[in-house]
Nucleic acid binder design. Structure first.
Lengths: 117, 117
DNA sequence: CCATGGGTTCAGGAGTTGTTGAACAATAGG
DNA sequence: CCTATTGTTCAACAACTCCTGAACCCATGG
């Protein structure tokens, strides 16, 4: 398992891949949370999807260049490549995270939409 | 053909749908061009895809709330819903258009990255 | 040694996407 | 009327997406 995981370089990060990766609500939730926590293990996102599925989504984010995955013993620690994304597509990550938090309620887990007009 | 085309209201615009719509390079090129020209007919994008295909992509953009389609005689005039997008997801459209132009070279067809500061 | 917690890999399935060609519809001009 | 321009609808297709269960690997700790 000590295989090196593939990550695109900063220059290789492709806009289509990033938008595709972030068009999925589950992946966007993961990203939004990493924004606050900095780094987390895969297992911390068990609320969003099954273990198998999480591997899939994590790979999707990693291959798009959105996250970096570091191997730490038996765990995979995931973090945001915020600086790389900001350098390549300024303002993009922030706009998407803000939009995600606005839609999901930002801190409330349920949908407590205050019924906007 | 004088059917009314469906457009989501500003509040109905969904982030997943927008990102999904803009994850396609063809649709992003259309959007990037509308950014400069304001309003154009479907046929003006014939360089990007076939007629049939253009109908598909235009519908995708429209249904996501990214563009508005106005019927003008035999033509369909497409324009960006920039204000609606900006109100809903501030900075998003600008970041994506900028990234698109950086990748496509904005005027050069090939990849001649002049390494702007 | 065996078990456990943390992740992966594989095969498969239901659904979606991007694309095409053929046929059609609607508006406008001779 | 006939024709051209502009765009739609439909059926089909290969490829991909998201998700699942079963099996597996790998590091640690009794």
């Amino acid at each position: 398992m000590a295989k090196e995981l593939h990550h695109p370089t900063r220059e290789q990060i492709d806009l289509s891949a990033v938008l595709d990766a972030l068009s999925d609500p589950i992946r966007r939730q993961i990203v939004a949370r990493l924004r606050h926590t900095g780094e987390e293990a895969c297992s911390c996102f068990g609320e969003f999807a099954s273990k198998t599925n999480l591997t899939y989504h994590a790979a999707r984010l990693r291959e798009a260049g959105v996250t970096r995955t570091r191997i730490d013993g038996p765990r995979r620690m995931i973090s945001l490549r915020a600086a790389d994304l900001e350098a390549r597509f300024p303002g993009l990550l922030e706009a998407i995270v803000a939009g995600t938090e606005a839609e999901t309620g930002r801190s409330a887990p349920a949908q407590a939409e205050p019924a906007e007009a």
